[in-house]
Design a protein around this nucleic acid. Sequence first.
RNA 1: GGGGACGUAGUGUAGUGGUUAACAUGUCGGCCUGUCAAGCCGAAGAUCGCGGGUUCGAACCCCGUCGUCCCCGCCA
Length: 588
Amino acid sequence: MLKTHNCGDLRVADVGETVTLAGWVHRRRDHGALIFLDLRDRSGLVQVTCNAQGTPAAHAVLNTVRGEYVIQVQGGVRDRPAGLTNPNLPTGEIEVVAESAQILNEAHTPPFYINEDVEIDEALRLKYRYLDLRRPVMQQNIILRHQVVSFIRKFLDGRDFLEIETPMLIKTTPEGARDYVVPSRVHPGSFYALPQSPQQLKQLLMVAGYERYFQIARCFRDEDLRADRQPEFTQLDLEMSFVDREDVMALIESLYIALIEALGSKPILAKPFLVLTYAEAMARYGSDKPDLRFGMELVDLGDLSGGSEFKVFSEALAAGGQVKAIVAPGCADFSRRQLDDLGEQVKRFGAKGLVWIARKGDGSVKSAAARFLSESELAAIFERTGAGLGDLVLIVAAANRSVIARSLGELRLALGQQLGLVRRDVHALCWVVEFPLLEWSEQGGRWTAMHHPFTSAMDEDWPLLESDPGRVRAKAYDLVMDGWEVGGGSIRIHRRDRQQAMFRALGIGPEEAEEKFGHLLEAFEFGAPPHGGIATGIDRTVAILAGTTSIREVIAFPKTASATDLMFRSPSEISEAQLRELHLSITA
RNA sequence: GGGGACGUAGUGUAGUGGUUAACAUGUCGGCCUGUCAAGCCGAAGAUCGCGGGUUCGAACCCCGUCGUCCCCGCCA
């Protein structure tokens, strides 16, 4: 080894030791005959010093080094003189007096600061990702990610799980996201698909009798990107035989509690995790991934507004819709401009408008709708919503219930952040269960699986699959953390007849089912055990633990929003020869 | 596919129609033996993303285009 110690590990206990260090010049403070420099390696920083009289050999070398030079230093660890310690550095009580030093490699001045935390254009960071990753913040993120994955492996190994790899070159499936596809050289005109998840493979491992499987699995989906979505991402993929819903949930709950308590920096707001049905989550939070770090729940005003003079209310209800409200605490004095902005926000989600009622501090009521609402109606609204003096009641009425949920749910999130109501000092996790098995696709004109086509219905709901598919609830569960969907899973179908019934409900005919899923259907006839599992997002989990809002911050080499890699400059064209070999021609 | 924001020395920003594009920091040089965002003095460093247009005159206004980010659609 070119070094005997790590920079960041040196302490007072090492005083008197002779050490050899190697690392990057983080910062240099040159007093002429006296030089200080902060030497950095993965473990952290330590101050190295030398002077022209006492250590001339080292001084001659360190006089020429610059930022990010890679150097090696030999010297003794000593206590810093009294009053000269640096409490901001874990190594701040000691320093290394360099006796000699060598330049291992010179470095250009980097295109951005590695030794300072300033905002840098993300495109530049991605172009020089290897320098970006050198920054201490990024190193912490990547190290945290390693710790999370390592923790999960140990946890599951201790509970009798087997880590089993599954292929990356599989087969395109109907349903779900757009596949990334790989042309076959050997079979002209045929393609592999990269897995959107190892879903079928892990089910087949259950049929194979492995009982408890997991994998830190890379997944690929060719869909547009977001701050929390990359074309390739990593899941903890897990499957168990002979379990019911509660078994999988209990296992993952204990894993996440242990994980957060071991590696997170914030306490968990409530244990055990709250379990909400999908219907409840939508009703109370207007979202299937509610952020429980603050209140501001949606309140139903339907029974108060049935006979209202206010047609916005009564007509929505007559059309089978709802009238619902949230209370923005202390916002009664919002300006007209602010209220208009809130109105614009809900319109994005299909609401015709936002009804606002300001209950002023002096007890007076201000509202554009006030003349349509009686005293008693107002009083009832204030009582139901709990709106006090100084609060602002925000109401959406619509015939379409999902419009109300969506618009008030998003408004709740926006206001929660804007008003600083979201508790940043805790993590809040919950389960959302009993999702609808199917949802109607307007553009497809058919039912689609809300989770995936292998999800089992609730036992008592199976009879509804043909008669009333929209009412069938799934044995599915989502894990939600701080308003992010971090995981989702289900008990699977393990009987051929039920799987066929599911395909039928999805409009997949017998021939197509045989062609696309024949292997699975056949496997179910050879003794498939009842089984279920879950997949949780490693990128999202680490991002939340790291306190960042983009998963790119916890992925070593992420892609841009347009799915390019700025360092490799990928995707890129391939040669004519490669195209020929793959039997491909470019038409675009 | 759609909407929005941004693009100015290496980096982060200011400049919203008028002389030589400003500030901080970094870089380079000089001085300096206790700094830790070292300090002091000096110097260099800009195709104002790119193309077109309006104007006597454009970093600034307009159109297009490229790139990055955020959102909608999409994401079983």
